[in-house]
Structure formats: C-alpha cells, structure tokens
Design a protein around this nucleic acid. Structure first.
Length: 271
DNA sequence: TTAATCACCTGAGGGC
DNA sequence: TGCCCTCAGGTGATTA
C-alpha cells in the first residue's frame, strides 16, 4: 500500500529509466481507474520526450513539453520498468512505451489509482493546489502544525493524515509517528501541546526518512520499480502488531479503529 | 467550516 | 478443496 516513502522510492527507481525517453505509444488496457484514463493520452503523448519525473505528495508527475501526466498509485498500484515484449498480466492497466523498447507499466489490482493529464501548471490542478506542505520540507514545522491545530476537535491521528495539514502521512506512518512521539492517537489535535508538536514533527520526518532509506514498507503488494520488496516493515514498532508487547514497556499493543482506519498504539506509553 | 461517513475495488486470509 | 465472508486502505464526494 503505497504511502509517501513508497511513492518516493518508486520515483527514484523509475527516474533514470524514464527521464529523457521519448514516448512511442501509450497502451491502455483498462480505462476505469479511480477516474477514467483520458482516451486521448496516446495521441497527446506520442513522440513527446519526458523531461522530468517529480513528486508532489503521493502524486507522481511525468513532465513533457505539452503538459504533465499525473499518476497516483492508490492502494495497490505499482510501476515497473520492463522490456515491452514482456506480456502484460492481469491488472497491468497501462504501458508507456518508449523508443528504446522499454516501457513503464502500471499494475493496480484494486484500481484506486489514477492516471490523468494536465496541460497547464500541474500544481494548480484541483487535486494538487490545496495540498499542505511536504513533510520533509522546511516549511513543515511545529509552528505551522500547532497554529492549524488550535480549537480543532478532530483526533490527532486524523489531523496529521489530513493532506491539507501535511501531505504524505498515511495510516502506517501516522501510527508509528504517534508512538514515537508518545501521543495517544485519539487525543484531540487542539489539546496537544506545542512541545509535543515539536517532537511529533521531528519524528514524522525521521520515520519517513528512514522508510525511504529502507525502500518503503512492504505490506501485502508493494514492490519497488525493480520488483524488490521494501524493508521498513521490519522497523515498525506498533503497526500490525496487535497484542504483541510494546517495544518500550512490554504492555500489549492495542488496536482500534479511528476514522475507519486500523490504529495501533500503546496505552501505557502514549498519553 | 468542521467532522464523519460513504464509495470505489479486489486480493488475502479465516472459518466452515 | 472450495465457497463465503470480512478486512484492508487513499482520498474525493457527500452528508450532517
């Protein structure tokens, strides 16, 4: 399940294979993703050179002279670089075929992902323009998040997962960051002290950096662009560890549902 | 404006 | 072994 580290790992993996390549064809096998893939994409991108592979939040942007492809991996999406002669399998929905014979192939069993095209500034696209700061950017700091949290009654976990507050903190890393910061996930965002927000911002950055370094979290079906799994799962303290002893106090990890998402925490260490 | 809920989708895993 | 059911989860849209 791709979160920000998985998307960044994917970006780094595909970048060297995609930047500078010229699109020969776009083969769409399944138009129905989260939103329909534009049927004119092949015509639009044919003979276009991809000059950049960038990321904003969990969106990947493929830059060309005529506009940007906006890619989202949703819940189960993955991108791989393959020789185009490799037969497509079930759930391989779209190929960006390059002149060198390779292709960028999107697989997405659950089809929560998206492939869109934007001719204008992609950062003004309706999906991107209201997003909060990048978590690893200097603009994401304790003052920013503390100021926005005042009088907010929503749980701190939902708050840090809100992309208008900060992008890229998904369910796994929200649980991990709150554990490291010693904050109970059901605490109201407006009741968390400035000191705790200082710590929380710091551990969010740490968790995401460590996960990127480890190649993401391989849960169920995430693989890197070369097909290898991520290794951050081994470093998770609480996520997916219901009833296992807390790494700090040995009390069993609790699981409950917050905002319709499984949440893991230690009732002893997180207040 | 804020908070909560719904909808989309399919593979994995458990129970029988 | 096969069938059925539940769970998982990112995020925009909808509702309260």
């Amino acid at each position: 399940m791709p979160e920000l580290p998985e998307v960044e790992t994917t970006r780094r993996g595909i970048r060297k294979h995609v930047e500078g390549q010229t699109v020969k064809a776009v083969i769409i096998r399944q138009h129905k993703l989260r939103w329909p893939i534009p049927s004119t994409l092949n015509k639009t991108l044919a003979r276009q050179r991809i000059h950049s592979v960038t990321r904003r939040a969990k969106y990947l942007l493929l830059g060309t002279d005529v506009g940007h492809v906006i890619l989202h991996l949703g819940m189960s999406g993955s991108l791989r670089i393959l020789d185009h002669s490799v037969p497509a399998e079930k759930h391989d929905h779209i190929d960006f075929v390059f002149n060198n014979g390779q292709c960028l192939r999107l697989r997405d069993p659950r089809r929560f992902g998206a492939v869109l095209f934007c001719r204008d500034d992609p950062y003004q696209h309706k999906l991107l323009k209201s997003l909060g700061p990048e978590p690893l950017d200097k603009h994401f700091d304790a003052k920013h998040i503390f100021d926005l949290s005042r009088k907010r009654k929503v749980t701190i976990k939902s708050f840090i997962m809100d992309s208008k507050i900060v992008v890229g903190v998904g369910n796994i890393y929200a649980s991990e960051a709150l554990f490291r910061a010693g904050i109970h996930p059901k605490r109201a965002a407006g009741k968390v002290s400035k000191e705790k927000y200082h710590l929380l911002v710091s551990v969010i950055k740490d968790v995401l950096k460590e996960a990127i370094k480890a190649g993401g979290t391989s849960l169920r079906n995430f693989t890197q662009s070369d097909g290898k799994p991520g290794y951050f799962k081994q470093a998770l303290n609480v996520y997916g560890r219901k009833s296992e002893p807390c790494p700090n106090c040995k009390k069993p990890i609790t699981q409950s549902v917050i905002a319709q998402r499984s949440t893991y925490y230690c009732t002893q260490c997180q207040k």
